[in-house]
Design a protein around this nucleic acid. Structure first.
Length: 607
DNA sequence: ACAAAGATGAGGCGCTTA
DNA sequence: TAAGCGCCTCATCTTTGT
């Protein structure tokens, strides 16, 4: 064909726009610009208190006219001099943000905690004077702002920085604050837990326990130092085969941290390619178990790069049989006839929730028609770019098409027509979010010999039941499954499958992980005799690179539900541990954790 | 109102090259 | 070693169609 068709294909290629200058640092002050002297902790929190006034300039009036307090403006002028109005404004704006965030949060959480948990820091020898007299540097201001954004009050953040040191990472500071909140919650809850037979802990015990918690945080801090903060980022392995794949090399032993060892066994899944640090956090929360990163292209004909954190044994794994098609041609034999020689793909890219438009098929067909044999390289490049981007397969001469939902099912290892009956959009969405059954089954296969009489499963974020199907296909009997899934459509899909496959166990469906509390879990645990296995992949919406709007990391609206996975897992561990020897503290901590996470979820909804 | 189609980058990593 | 480039990504929002 001529150049016009070529350019039309090229035209649908990526637009290499170089205008990518983000203004991320609107409120981030450069160290050189921002040095403060003492007193701003007061300035942020305090209102209307008089200060020794020295400046009464036009600049002062100007900024006061803009609505900033006299004290703040004076402080800014002292810092930067009257002539440097830009720096003054920047400082004032920063502190306005700090102040409003702090007030807003104090207001919203005041109904939850009647007083700040910092009240309980009296035994930590931090006097308020010390805090006020500290001179925050710009680094400190950054840390302060970060913590405030995360939902801590300015006062709490200041004390955490004071206590942990300015060189502390955000993670260490939040650890410290979590421990402090835990200690506070413990006190708040104790009166409620004065059941008959339950011994009220003495005040000294509380202090000891708080001390222990703080010590624990310090210990972890030291450990992190030892590991080295700079290279804390979890690296993705290459090739991405985790502890091994059926056809290749495998590792048969690993050391798990003591606290991570089951029962219960747990299995957590999420996308491998997250914003930096997300997997570090996930791993740290899940008892410092390193993630196993696996690309499902080693199991089927489509890629699916995922990270799995679990405490399952890794020896004697076995794959599901029959093995699924390993290449595109095996999966779609009819397409071979139309597959051009210059399309060298053997595996598909990740199956995601959305697919290409019909217009793209048309554009590609137009771009290719007219070439009897092989089109020019530029045309090939353009077409291949779109084929890879949208996972297109060849279905006719010069004609490509996106995969159908039932083809998704086949590639992901689901039964044919598993999602049939719901809207096409919902099918793509549910399948795009699902496990790759063969991959997950390979990891779960070790459970079969461990639980010959069947298992009790707590399945979080169940979706369309990937975990249940994996266990079923492995021949592991599910005695009881407590499944949490917010989408009614998905719950129906799993329910139908459960009935169609004539499962003899019980399937208990609950909608929202956020509402699953210690009391519910205690009931299930006492009824079933405990959970053997806790599995789930929390939402990836705010982690995946595909999200152009809210890739906010683990603190994002949906992805922060990860913390509920941890909360629930930790609750189950605590309850089951407490059920053995009578450890009242465990039960209490269990309940405090629950409260903390309800509180955290409230804060998260604010952002 | 619901479903489907269409338009919408950027982060992170690996590779190449200077 | 650093800079540049190519590649891939469990998506969201708005518009259009039924």
């Amino acid at each position: 064909m001529d150049g016009s068709s070529t350019s039309s294909v090229e035209g649908i290629d990526i637009d290499w726009d170089t205008e990518d200058e983000l203004e991320l640092d609107n409120f981030t002050l450069s160290p050189s610009k921002f040095e403060l002297t003492g007193g701003e902790a007061n300035m942020v929190c305090g209102e209307g208190s008089s200060s020794p006034s020295s400046s009464n300039s036009k600049v002062l009036d100007q900024f006061m006219g803009m609505g900033f307090s006299k004290k703040m403006v004076e402080k800014a002028i002292d810092e930067h001099g009257e002539e440097n109005t830009d720096a003054i404004l920047e400082m004032l704006l920063t502190y306005s943000v700090l102040e409003s965030s702090s007030q807003e949060l104090q207001q919203t959480d005041s109904d939850y905690f009647s007083r700040s948990f910092l009240d309980d820091f009296s035994d930590l020898d931090i006097s308020s004077d010390e805090v006020e007299n500290t001179s925050p540097t710009s680094e400190e201001v950054k840390l302060l702002m970060s913590l405030i954004k995360m939902g801590y009050t300015e006062e709490e953040a200041s004390i955490a920085i004071e206590r942990c040191g300015l060189s502390s990472s955000l993670l260490e500071l939040t650890d410290f604050l979590s421990a402090a909140q835990l200690a506070k919650a413990e006190d708040a809850l104790l009166p409620l837990e004065q059941k008959p037979g339950l011994k009220r802990l003495h005040n000294d015990d509380h202090k000891k326990k708080r001390k222990l918690l703080i010590d624990e945080v310090s210990k972890r801090k030291r450990q992190n130092r030892f590991i080295g903060e700079d290279n804390e980022t979890v690296r993705l392995p290459k090739p991405m085969i985790g502890f091994g794949i059926p056809s290749g090399p495998y590792q048969s032993y690993r050391n798990l941290p003591k606290v991570a060892i089951g029962p219960p066994y747990f299995y957590y899944e999420n996308v491998a390619l997250t914003p930096k640090g997300a997997w570090d956090t996930i791993s740290r929360f899940l008892y410092d178990v390193p993630p196993e990163f696996v690309d499902s292209k080693h199991f089927c004909a489509a890629a699916r790069k995922r990270g799995y954190v679990h405490n399952l044994p890794i020896e004697n794994r076995f794959p599901l049989v029959p093995l699924p098609p390993q290449t595109i041609h095996e999966a779609f034999p009819l397409s071979r006839k139309w597959w051009p020689s210059w399309d060298t793909r053997t595996k598909l890219n990740c199956l995601v929730t959305c697919h290409s438009s019909a217009k793209l098929t048309e554009r590609i067909m137009k771009a290719l028609e007219g070439y009897d044999d092989i089109p020019p390289e530029e045309v090939q490049r353009g077409v291949m770019h779109e084929c890879r981007k949208w996972n297109l397969v060849w279905v006719g001469k010069n004609r490509v098409a996106p995969l159908e939902p039932d083809e998704f099912e086949m590639l992901l290892g689901f039964p044919k027509n598993h999602t049939r009956g719901i809207s096409r959009t919902d099918r793509y969405k549910s399948l795009g979010n699902a496990f790759q059954i063969d991959t997950v089954s390979y990891h779960l296969s070790v459970l079969r010999d461990m639980f010959p009489n069947g298992i009790n499963v707590l399945s979080l974020f169940s979706g369309i039941g990937g975990a249940e199907i994996a266990l079923h296909r492995l021949g592991i009997h599910m005695k009881n499954v407590v499944s949490l899934e917010i989408s009614e459509v998905n719950r129906n899909v799993l329910r139908c499958w459960w009935e169609q496959t004539k499962q003899t166990g019980n399937l208990i469906h609950l909608p929202d992980v956020q509402e699953l509390n210690a009391a519910h879990l205690e009931q299930f645990i006492s009824a079933f005799g405990g959970f053997d296995f806790i599995i789930g992949g929390s939402p990836c919406n705010n982690l995946t690179g595909s999200n152009r709007y809210h890739r906010d990391g683990l603190e994002g609206k949906e992805s922060s539900l990860f913390y509920h996975y941890f909360r629930i897992l930790d609750l189950v561990k605590s309850i089951m541990a407490a059920d053995k020897p009578i450890r009242y503290e465990c039960k209490l901590v269990t309940i405090f954790l629950n409260q903390i996470w309800v509180f955290a979820s409230r804060l998260i909804t604010i952002f």
